[in-house]
Amino acid sequence: MIEVTELRKHYGDVQAVDGVSFEIRAGEAFGLLGPNGAGKTTTIHITVGALAPDSGEVRIDGKPDPTRAETRAGVGVAPQDLAIYPVLTAEENLAFFAKLYGITGSRLKERVDWGLEFSGLTDRRKSRSVEFSGGMKRRLNLACAAVHEPRVLFCDEPTVGVDPQSRAHIFDRIEQLKAGGCTLIYTTHYMEEAQRLCDRVAIMDHGRILACDTVDALIAHHGGDSIVEAELLAVPSNRDTLGGEIDGDRLRVQTDKPFDAIAELGRSGVEVGELRVDRPDLERVFLALTGRSLRD
């Protein structure tokens, strides 16, 4: 469906994208994760044809040049910025973007109504978007990207800065689109979203893709061991028999078989208060690959 090969793009001395390659299959949800400035947005802009790469190629449906009108007609973009017109009403925004894709007449009305329902703004259709809350704007932003029924939808941080209710609404709607067969390219800083939604995830940093695989495979390769942490009600005199590290009354065991470790703890006869298992997840993969240093 989408083939990206050796994309490169620089701004002055900064190499924003440095040899990025990936493939996305039809109907797949593909996550693009990375810290701020990793090159995700530039990659998306190049992929949708809004930005020309220094080198490299993007093919959509086997055809080069994503700027071709027929290719663009099947693509939708929900930018990270709220790409809606504040002084236009919800329905005017939807109608404007639908018209750009050649939708007119009764179908236009139908799609606008769909967009309003999709964004939960049917009751506010005549309100200007400047009057909306952040969550409402985000929902409208996504609806405007999907109003023309694209086969491919790029979602750049679609849930950033919204309340949990709007976030849940947006996420539900994206899952709905995915269930309808829409191919999704999804960037986010919320790892649980990527873990829940994406079939595959690419982790980027410094303009490069560091790893690209299914979530489970990434965790298996880069997530490390689980950590079993137990509160010891009485610290035994012979600490070595427990395995792991004891810090005060806390026992911390790093293992790839956490249930075995818990069973062993039970057999040792040590009295345990609170017990916690920290399994590896995408966030740990992310930090493992990109490091813990701050990005500005």
Binding site: H45, V48, G49, A50, A69, E70, R72, A73, V75, G76, V77, P79, Q80, D81, L82, A83, I84, Y85, P86, F97, L100, Y101, G102, C144, A145, F154
Partner: peptide
């Protein structure tokens, strides 16, 4: 505000 990106990604 990002609408230019959306316009640039549209089939125009």
């Amino acid at each position: 505000q990002g609408t230019l990106l959306r316009l640039r990604a549209a089939p125009i």
